[in-house]
Amino acid sequence: MHKGELLIIGGSEGKEHETEILDKFIELSRARGGAVGILPTASQIPDQVSAEYVETFRRLGAQEIEIIGVDSREKAESPEISELVSKLSALFITGGNQKRLKDLIKGTALYDTLYEKWSSGMVIGGTSAGASIMGEHMIVSAQTKAKDDVLEVDMDEGFGLLKNMIIDQHFSQRARFGRLLHAIAQESQTIGIGIDENTAILVKGNEFEVYGQHQVRVFDGKNRTYVDVNIADNGSEEATMSGIQLHTLTKGYRFDLSKRELLNRKGE
């Protein structure tokens, strides 16, 4: 079987109105005829977050919903949790803290089951932290120290569902252009994808299509001609870059991740 679709959401997706993105997730899950799982591990309030998605998914037509309650690596190693995930047609990863997701799940029996199920066709959706975790690498945090104006970007490993890729979310709304550019500056093969709120990409194979209200940005440094990073007097890393290619896409547009190019024009 082919790997399952990935519905990667930039956060703050519509749950009561403008539910196009979550409608698509439920449509994909129903096509496979099994239960929908909700993984709220990233959240500090998992019960509340899970209840919100259960209510939304039921309203949108989900018949069977399972909560994958994992708040420790011990639970992530549990045979019962892996068995529950093995029966799902789709899994939704909620927002919260992506480092918590990685620390509690990466390298466990649950991760192995999740990856195996996705490799054989299970749909995975994720929003905010649940979006960032899907890349091979992820931005854990970034901050500019007000006193010295120093940008610090903290990176970690993601789940690796998308190789050579970094996903960033809440992109325009939280002014994350600089941090994503900074994250890909040192690795030419890595693609950076910045997804706005209430916006998503649906990845099938090597292609994705944009859904939702706003924009998706793709940063591609494969054909860059120059990158240099200097350390300023205040300790800040300041980059000079040339040849970084930027693509911006809106609803209905498709992109080829292997060829790194736009696939369609307006109306096609």
Score class of each variant (00 low, 15 high):
I231M: 13
L249Y: 09
T240K: 12
Q186R: 10
L181R: 07
R176H: 03
L257C: 02
F159Y: 07
Q169Y: 06
V216S: 04
S188N: 12
G212T: 02
G243S: 06
K163G: 11
L161R: 02
I195M: 03
D168R: 09
G178N: 09
T248D: 03
E197C: 01
G192C: 03
I195S: 02
N234I: 01
D196P: 01
R176E: 01
L257W: 00
T225I: 06
E187G: 04
Y253L: 08
L162Q: 14
N198E: 10
K222T: 01
G243Q: 09
N164T: 06
K222C: 00
T190W: 06
E187F: 08
E237K: 12
N223V: 02
Y211C: 04
N164P: 04
E207A: 09
Q213S: 14
Q245G: 03
T225Q: 11
A200M: 06
V227F: 11
S172I: 07
G158F: 07
E197V: 01
V229R: 04
R217M: 14
G160L: 08
G194Q: 10
E237D: 05
L162P: 02
S188K: 15
I191S: 01
E187P: 05
L161S: 03
I201K: 06
S188A: 14
K251V: 09
L180Q: 02
K163V: 06
E209V: 15
G194E: 09
M155G: 11
R217V: 15
R224S: 14
K204N: 15
L246Q: 08
V227D: 04
Q215F: 14
A183V: 08
A200K: 03
M165P: 02
G243R: 10
L180A: 00
K204A: 14
K222P: 01
I201F: 07
G235Y: 02
T248E: 12
M241Q: 14
I184E: 02
H182Q: 09
Q189T: 10
Q169H: 07
T250P: 04
I191Y: 00
Q213P: 03
H214I: 05
G160P: 08
G192V: 02
E207T: 15
I193Y: 01
M241T: 11
T250V: 13
L161Y: 06
G205A: 08
L257A: 00
I193E: 01
G243N: 11
Q245I: 11
D156V: 05
G252L: 10
D233R: 15
I244G: 02
Y211E: 05
H170E: 05
M165I: 14
R179D: 00
R224K: 12
